[in-house]
Design a protein around this nucleic acid. Structure first.
Length: 474
RNA sequence: UCCCCUGUAGCUCAAUUGGUAGAGCGAGCGGCUGUUAACCGCUAGGUUGCUGGUUCGAGUCCAGCCGGGGGAGCCA
């Protein structure tokens, strides 16, 4: 009576960790391809998501269910395989399983209609079958990269003394900045309650007020920063902007650290150190997946990340960036949008700075106050604020951050100047009344980070189930 | 929201000045093979996104609608 073989992941089997050649093991997964040999055996490529590579399972023709089961296996079927690990006699893998049992678990009922057969597909098509696209090489690799980077984010902050703060998903609308938001309501859309003046009566809504999905955890995380010193959020955020680009999602994940007793330079230091840390982790932990992206998606992605973690970010003042752009124009370069001090940098300007002029990430700092948000700290020159954007080649703005205005009188003046109602910012102003300190933070778009790291061209393909205008299937 | 491109077999694409809708891949069957982007043969598979218009005749031209992609703006 042979003992039941121990269950192993394909990652363990291929790296012979916890098992070795000659061991009897069990693996569980899905068929990628089946190749029959009339020598009387079949080769099954089995993947289970534990690593990039699949395991070659050699099913001999004398298995009792060879004709009834093994030869009917098609791409997508799930199986439990038992057998002995042996050195492969073929090329393409060093270890394979000589199977003693191949047990189908779930069949593909009609191989002709299986949405992801073993052939090339466009990413556009695969978005229509997002529930199955993760069975492909590309999307399982993306899932592992996403996990790796998310773990690295938490590890970095944990190791550096930051606390992860769970800021709310549903927020009162008062303290949010500009930008379209998704309303959260339990009111009956067919029969909205009205007050005497005919306005919708939100006092009858679930929260007794207007509420929306968060567009940023920043304001909330500032409050925790001013008690815990170093904090961050990492969670979903929602923008109802009708943005149709390869860089925007209606639902995306954002990382927002906030540090107390800190200025804009500290903020830029943090951004640089943090990004290098997570990319270094990715290069070290997922060489196989990154190798796939290099070979099939973007030949330069590994070189780019290696250069990224080795070189220092270029830092320049907005004013100097404008001067550089003006010199480029004087030298014959043409932009669609004119360059002058005071404009917000257009995508073409940012691309020129990071791709053409510098060739690596650039931190642009100290923007004109008139084009930035009310909470950004005013500089002594009276015309700029301590804001920064990190621009990366190929993806554009990846980080937006600022030192926050910690002086109540200056903040109030700014609120009034922008036509906002100070009453709406009561709790936020309290943070300046009671033990205020200089503090700063930034927001990093997680999907843009993944796209940058892998060379994937569209953020819709680096999140499992993308939400975009007119698209929320699954 | 604006500009451009686009919609033909399960998927990726052909189809000349408007004139009988094709191929590759995938799938099924057979052959061959310790195979691995396999290879060879056969077979199945289509109201050409929808609605209307022009025409003897529309995949092709026109209008509207719907979907997809790229860019811009906004931003992360």
């Amino acid at each position: 009576m042979t003992a039941t073989p121990a269950v192993h992941t394909i990652k363990q089997v291929l790296s012979t960790t916890g098992c070795g050649l000659g061991d009897a093991v069990e693996v569980r997964g899905w068929i990628r391809t089946r190749r029959d040999s009339k020598a009387g055996l079949s080769f099954l490529q089995v993947h289970d998501g534990s690593c990039f590579d699949s395991l070659q399972v050699v099913a001999p023709g004398d298995l009792p269910n060879y004709a009834d089961d093994v030869q009917r296996l098609t791409t997508g079927c799930s199986v439990v395989c038992r057998g002995v690990l042996v050195e492969s006699r073929g090329k393409g893998q060093s270890v394979e399983m000589q199977a003693t049992e191949v047990n189908p678990v779930g069949w593909v009922e009609d191989p002709d209609t299986y949405p992801v057969p073993a052939k090339r597909h466009t990413f556009e098509y695969l978005r229509d079958v997002a529930h199955l696209r993760v069975r492909t090489n590309t999307f399982s690799a993306i899932a592992r990269v996403r996990h790796c980077l998310a773990q690295a984010v938490h590890r970095y902050y944990h190791e550096h003394g930051f606390y992860w703060v769970h800021t709310p998903i549903v927020t009162g609308s008062d303290c949010e900045g500009a930008g379209e938001m998704f309303r959260v309501s339990t009111l009956d859309l067919e029969n909205l309650p009205r007050d005497p003046s005919g306005q919708i009566d939100f006092s009858q809504d679930f929260f007794g007020r207007e509420t929306n999905l968060t567009v940023s955890g920043q304001l909330n995380v500032e409050s925790y920063c001013l008690a815990l010193s170093k904090v961050y959020t990492f969670g979903p955020t929602f923008r109802a902007e009708n943005s149709n680009t390869s860089r925007h999602l209606a639902e995306f994940w954002m990382i927002e650290p906030e540090i107390a007793f800190a200025n804009l330079d500290d903020d830029a230091d943090l951004a640089e150190d943090f990004l290098k840390y997570i990319f270094r982790a990715l290069l070290e932990e997922l060489p196989d997946d990154m190798g796939f992206f290099r070979d099939r998606i973007d030949a330069t992605c590994i070189d780019r990340l290696e250069a990224f973690v080795e070189s220092s970010f270029e830092r320049m003042d907005y004013t100097d960036a404008i001067t550089l752009l003006e010199k480029a124009v004087a030298g014959g370069h043409t932009f669609d949008f004119p360059v002058r001090w005071g404009i917000d940098l257009q995508s073409e300007h940012e691309r020129w700075l990071t791709e053409t002029h510098v060739g690596r990430p650039v931190v642009v700092m100290n923007y004109p106050r008139d084009i930035k948000a009310f909470y950004m700290r005013q500089n002594d020159d009276g015309r700029t604020v301590a804001a920064m954007d990190v621009l990366a080649p190929g993806i554009g703005e990846i980080i937006g951050g600022a030192q926050r205005e910690e002086r109540l009188d200056v903040l109030d003046a700014r609120i009034a100047e922008m036509g906002l109602d100070a009453e709406d910012y009561g709790w936020y102003r309290d943070l300046r009344k009671y033990g205020t300190v200089p503090h700063a933070g930034f927001g990093l778009g997680f999907e843009r980070t993944i796209a940058y790291a892998t060379g994937m061209a569209n953020v819709r393909d680096v999140i499992p189930f993308p939400r975009t205008p007119r698209s929320a299937a699954f």
